[in-house]
Amino acid sequence: MRKSLEKYYRIDKLPHIWCPGCGHGIITGAVVRAIDNLKLDKDKICIVSGIGCSSRAPGYLNFNTLHTTHGRALAFATGIKLARPDLKVIVLTGDGDCTAIGGNHFIHACRRNIDITTVVFNNSIYGMTSGQYSPMTPLGAYATTAPYGNIDRNFDLCKLAQASGATYVARGTVYHVPQLIKIIEKALQHKGFSVVETLSICPTYFGRKNKLGSPVKMMEMLRDNSITVKAAEKMPREEMVNKIVIGEFFEENAPEYTEEYMKIIQRAQGEE
């Protein structure tokens, strides 16, 4: 680790609990680098998570960190942000945490356009409980609770976020790290609700259940199957099967929730 980044970590809490080959440390590192590149005030950052492998990340980060209940990170984060709009609130969550048990909180946080950055660690599986299918597990994939193949259609998280009202939506992978850092930087600078879906790898459960080979092989799959948003626009539909579209999908300026609430306070006090 770069010496200058050590201040962002709780070095005494390392090594982390993640399995060898897990992609989550790369995403955590990308979040730290984005914070460092933007020179954000460390004391004004709150990092909130739910439950699962990804949600253990805040424990290693040296900020005000809050490890909440399963799926509820965005609800707690909304309370913090509305109480203290000057704080930079970042939510680190997983595919199960965010889109299954936390799905309702996710779409409503998008809808409110509250100034929170959400980074979704998408490893396509419930890792902490050892390999059950999530709403992001691809159709046909295997999991401990899908021993005959998954018949649940998976979410496209970026489409879900955009349709729900998020005002910055992007996708990256743990293979394309420089791009991921840039995307997270843009998300952190964006005023409003920003979503960064990051494809991670889970060699221990998703990889093993689906015979995907070593962590290196899984990384190569991310490399070989990813195409940019621009390339995807020109690609015929039949060639898009199993492709991962990465980059920025959507960005717009829209009224931000806590700023709108400050106007409510002014309106209410003006009436008196």
Binding site: V48, L66, T68, R72, A75, F76, T78, G79, I80, L82
Partner: peptide
């Protein structure tokens, strides 16, 4: 559920 979560977040803040 979210109301209770938001209340805890705000109190921590």
């Amino acid at each position: 559920i979210a109301s209770m979560g938001a209340v805890i977040g705000a109190s921590l803040a």
